[in-house]
Design a protein around this nucleic acid. Structure first.
Length: 832
RNA sequence: GCCCCCAUGGCCCAAUUGGCAGAGGCAGGGGACUUAAAAUCCUUGUGGUGUGGGUUCGAGUCCCACUGGGGGCACCA
């Protein structure tokens, strides 16, 4: 007899996942069961998985993430909500361009071919997506509105250009946002990043720093705490003061006012020198002619460092004297002004007052260059000048004039009052967050809709001329990175008349970072065919915010912060009533193999397609969900897709065994099995609401085991309670294993689709037990178990417990000190 | 260096939020069926919850310290 390696057989029928996948895929396709009604007949809910980048076919990571999102979508649908669960592609980006260069092709060819591959895989994977809302960010119909939004940002002053030292990836030949630099290297290719001074486009996300921080209050409890912590960290709010220092005139150089940011104004009297960022214009402005050559040599030296070297905290401090002196506004002391690279040009004001006694970096610098150290806060520790360790704790101010005797906190408050009174400073809040550098010198992205005119300057492309389409005549080598955008080479595309004056003008040749595209796609999904704007505001108000967002924690800062920013701007434009895009966030874990992330270099990759061929879609999906809590990593070496397959076969066989007719009244069925069924349904709902998907599967396995037992050695296959149990199993299983569940539903005599069967009703009467087992402890040790009525009184239970023979034996004649009674479950007797 | 999370049978993981440590699965042992095997079914768990303290009648759960693992930030003034 020939057997399928994965088939299991009983009573003449065999579970073959291949057959089920072939049978039900087309049926669902025809039914279109996953398009929301959007008619107000049910409460709307929006479930969204972070849309994929089309790099080849789907992989194990997609399989996990989308399995999780689909559990939520399918559960909510069973609960009767009108669920929107769309799918699309983040289809602009460098890999397509690199592939095009290599194959002398257009990036669109590679991109759309991969999208087709992934779309087919998603269908096989039975994601309950609404395919009618499908979008691709590289479609002109989409990026038209990315450009439209850019124009709105521009009009509000939230998109601007500036000359600034930027992160430059020498390999990708493009600039990078701060968020895309990881440990001094390009997050995409790992190449050490260098600095380059360029004129680039920025979004003024810093203007929203406070709101991005404040509004996280709404997300608490619904977003993973660590994501909120990372964003908080990234925004980096710090309270302190701006203090003005006057730089004395020196020879040909006039007097100059420089503001510093400090979190420790209480230590103003401890400032012994002053430092400006070496790479800031300020350094060159201040330096005297006598010191200019030295500064310039130093600046060259700084520029030559890679970001990795520059960020090393091991590195010795370097710097040069500028020949100038700053006057301490509090005590009139003259402080030498140095230029150094440990002060950052783009944090605070790019200049600091150095207090070596109470700041380790300043102390290291002072030690290196023989500058004085003066402690002004007595912390009870040894003198930093002697130990080389700056003191940063609490203490009492000394050597600080009228601040003497105050605590650190009092000193900070008083010092701010003093500079404010003197008009030389003010309380302020500073953020670590920098503006978002959005322009890229590459081809395959959204063109920046700006025209540069010699007469009119920057002129936005009028809305009615959008989209600014990418030229389609560039391919292969013409797209090779050369440090300027390949678009610049498309002369007939670049040269256009100025929309304002009609004179000769040139298009901006940079494209947008793909994170711009993905910062609003969740809005486009609410009305993907809308032509009057990026989205229909009414549809957005109906569907948004997203009720459950699912994706990897690698986007904790980048995508999620940018999307929050975009949503706030769109809110300020009056287009949406809400200020946060994602009410709840689930970060699914990674799929590992043998304790490590799958990677080509380790050779431990697992191919999703092979797994699906071998075990079936349902078994792979079930394995992903059952392996661990959703947010934990899944190690493919530790799990058993074949075990999942066995369970599915076991569940499926139940449906074939049911011998009562569809519609049989369960009321007459076996009460014990009914109680298990209803308990399971009730518990699963609670578990799904709290995201414990793995436990739901475990509970479902229990139900299947109980049902098997009922058929084989209980009331038998004809008992209506068995049908009730199997129907509940099919519905719950449909969240994880849609093919198997659908076939069970069909075997039970129902029409498709089980996805719309509705969550089983729970009869509360079946959840209450009339007796429970009460545990009787003596000194915390279990001595007896009593069958008692659930509603037993404390007194009655106490009496029963004390009367128990094993308890009396354990007490051994000792008297009672305390008896704790928690009716009906527990009695703890403490002997005297 | 700073911050956050985690630690339960050989492994992946539950434990109604302070009340009997073990639900589910994997692996392993035993058995039924079979000429045999596969498949299927039945059956099988002293590890006391990383370590040391503490609170409590009672701690996997709360508090403190430590160890181990994972993650984030890191010249941010």
């Amino acid at each position: 007899m020939s057997t399928q390696p994965t088939g299991t057989e009983t009573g003449g029928s065999t579970y073959r996942f291949q057959d089920l996948e072939a049978k039900w895929g087309p049926v669902w396709e025809e039914l279109g069961v996953f398009t929301p009604k959007d008619d107000g007949s049910a409460e709307r809910r929006y479930v969204l998985d972070m849309f994929p980048y089309p790099s080849g076919d789907l992989h194990m990571g997609h399989a996990e993430a989308f399995a999780m999102g689909d559990v939520v979508a399918r559960y909510w649908r069973q609960r009767g909500y009108d669920v929107m669960h769309p799918i699309g592609w983040d289809s602009f980006g460098l890999p397509a361009e690199n592939a095009a260069i290599k194959r002398n092709a257009h990036p669109a060819e590679w991109t759309y071919a991969n999208i087709d591959t992934q779309a087919a895989s998603f269908k096989r994977y039975a994601i309950s997506a609404d395919w009618s809302r499908r979008l691709h960010t590289s479609d002109p119909e989409y990026y038209r509105w990315t450009q439209w939004l850019f124009t709105r940002f521009y009009e509000k002053g939230l998109a601007y250009r500036k000359d600034h030292p930027v992160n430059w990836c020498p390999k990708d030949q493009t600039v990078l946002a701060n968020e895309q630099v990881v440990n001094g290297a390009c997050e995409r290719c790992g190449t050490p990043v260098t600095k380059k001074s360029l004129n680039q486009w920025y979004f003024k996300i810093t203007e929203y720093a406070d709101r991005l921080l404040q509004d996280m209050e709404q997300l608490k409890g619904h977003w993973p705490e660590r994501v909120l912590a990372m964003q908080r960290n990234w925004i980096g709010r710090s309270e302190g003061a701006h203090v003005d220092f006057v730089i004395e005139a020196a020879g040909e150089r006039p007097e100059h006012k420089v503001t510093v940011f400090t979190t420790r104004p209480d230590t103003l009297h401890g400032a012994t020198f002053f430092v400006v960022a070496a790479d800031a214009d300020l350094a060159s402005d201040l330096v005297t002619e006598a010191h200019r050559a030295e500064l310039e040599a130093y600046q060259e030296q700084v520029k030559a460092l890679s970001e990795i070297e520059r960020q090393s905290t091991e590195r010795e401090k370097t710097g040069v004297f500028t020949g100038r002196y700053a006057v301490n506004p509090l005590n009139g002391e003259k402080l030498p002004v140095w230029a150094a690279d440990y002060v950052l040009a783009d944090y605070g004001t790019g200049a600091i007052m150095a207090v070596p006694a109470h700041d380790q970096r300043d102390l290291d610098f002072a030690t290196k260059f023989g500058l004085p150290v003066r402690a002004v806060l007595d912390t009870g520790e040894e003198d930093p000048a002697v130990t080389g360790l700056a003191t940063t704790g609490e203490g009492i101010l000394v050597n600080s004039g009228e601040l003497d005797g105050l605590s650190k906190a009092e000193g900070i408050a008083r010092a701010i009052e003093m500079v404010e009174a003197a008009g030389t400073g003010e309380r302020t809040v500073n953020f670590r967050l920098r503006d978002w550098l959005l322009s890229r010198q590459r081809f395959w992205g959204t063109p920046i809709p700006i025209i540069h005119c010699a007469e009119c300057g920057e002129v936005p492309v009028p809305d009615e001329h959008l989209p600014v389409r990418l030229p389609d005549n560039l391919r292969g080598e013409q797209l090779a990175p050369k440090g300027t955008s390949p678009l610049a080479a498309a002369e007939e595309w670049v040269n256009v008349p100025c929309p304002r004056c009609g004179g000769p003008a040139r298009r901006d040749t940079d494209t947008m970072d793909t994170f711009v595209d993905s910062s609003w796609y969740f809005l486009r999904f609410v009305s993907p065919q809308y032509t009057e704007g990026p989205f229909d505001p009414e549809a957005a108000a109906r569907w948004m915010p997203v009720g459950q967002y699912v994706g990897g924690v690698e986007h904790a800062i980048l995508h999620l912060l940018y999307s929050r920013f975009f949503t706030k701007v769109v809110h300020d434009l009056g287009l949406v009533p809400f200020t946060e895009p994602f009410s709840a966030l689930l970060n699914q874990g990674q799929v590992l193999n043998g304790g490590k992330a799958m990677s080509k270099s380790l050779g431990n990759g697992v191919d999703l397609g092979e797994q699906l061929d071998k075990f079936g879609v349902d078994a792979v999906r079930l394995t992903m969900v059952f392996a661990s809590p959703p947010e934990d990593d899944v190690d493919w070496a530790d799990v058993s897709p074949s075990g999942s397959g066995k369970f599915l076969a076991r569940a499926w066989r139940l449906a074939g065994d049911v011998s009562s007719g569809a519609g049989a009244d369960p009321a007459s069925g076996d009460r014990a099995l009914r109680a298990v069924t209803h308990r399971t349904v009730a518990d699963c709902a609670e578990l799904l609401d709290s995201g414990k998907f793995n436990v739901v599967v475990a509970r479902l396995m229990e139900l299947v085991n109980a049902t098997r037992k009922a058929i084989d050695s209980g009331p038998g296959a004809a008992d209506p309670a068995v049908r009730e149990a199997v129907e509940a199993t099919a519905v719950i299983l449909s969240l994880f294993a849609p093919y198997t569940a659908e076939d069970m539903w069909s075997l039970l005599g129902h029409e498709p689709a089980v996805a719309n069967a509705g969550w089983p009703a729970v009869d509360p009467a079946l959840l209450v037990q009339d007796t429970v087992v009460a545990v009787v402890q003596v000194q915390g040790k279990v001595r007896d178990r009593l069958d008692v009525p659930v509603d037993i009184t404390e007194e009655a239970l106490r009496e029963l417990a004390l009367a128990s023979e094993p308890v009396q034996r354990a007490l051994d004649g000792r008297g009672l000190r305390t008896v704790i009674v928690r009716a009906p479950k527990l009695v703890n007797i403490v002997p005297a």
